[in-house]
């Protein structure tokens, strides 16, 4: 099997915050009734994580489980584990209406890090990114400038952001120009 190509070959930029394209990870889009205990159990069994509440995301090591809408979840895991998780999910939910599909290649993940990470994003997304309003454990779907994106705090002073692969260059350029030296806002 050929190597999986990164959309931007692992691009990075350092300004008053750092922007990096992360290595591809396994990503599953799951559709199903998230309030159904059977679905919750299947997700727990497949990921080892508890289905979070509205707009929540739980993370443990290299895995994460996020609430995307009342009937949509996102599952993150090492690329190699994806096949197994899909099989497990489908088996657990056999006969039950759901959809679980590999979207690893459809999306690109960026990491924003440093004390200015929140400010970089606040230049692009119509979201209150102050520490008081946007805390660890929240997954926010919105737009960055003119394209859709989702992001969450992936660590102290660290934000993970996913967007569609085709606009990876656009989003990287947006983040980089917003993180460029001299653009510190110092609002948070």
């Amino acid at each position: 099997m050929s190597d999986v190509a990164q959309a931007l070959g692992g691009a990075s930029f350092t300004g008053f915050a750092r922007v990096e394209e992360l290595a591809p990870q396994g990503m599953i889009s799951f559709r199903g009734d998230l309030s159904d205990p059977v679905v919750q159990e299947a997700l727990r069994a497949a990921t080892g994580l508890e289905m979070p509440a509205q707009r929540g995301i739980v993370q443990a090591e290299e895995r994460a489980l996020g609430w995307m809408s009342p009937d949509e979840a996102i599952l993150l895991m090492p690329h190699a584990a994806l096949g197994g998780v899909l099989v497990e999910l489908r088996a657990a939910l056999a006969g039950q209406h759901h959809l679980a599909v590999d979207v690893s290649d459809a999306r690109v993940t960026f990491r924003l890090s440093g004390p200015g990470a929140r400010e970089v994003l606040a230049k692009l997304a119509p979201v209150d990114l102050s520490p008081a309003a946007f805390a660890e454990g929240e997954l926010r779907r919105t737009r960055v400038a003119q394209v859709a994106a989702a992001f969450w705090l992936s660590g102290a002073e660290e934000i993970a952001l996913i967007c569609f692969r085709s606009v990876a260059r656009y989003v990287f350029d947006l983040l980089a120009v917003s993180a460029a030296e001299g653009g510190e806002v110092r609002a948070f």
Partner: peptide
Amino acid sequence: PHCGVQADETE
């Protein structure tokens, strides 16, 4: 009402 966000019109 689905995700609880105070959404901006541009979203």
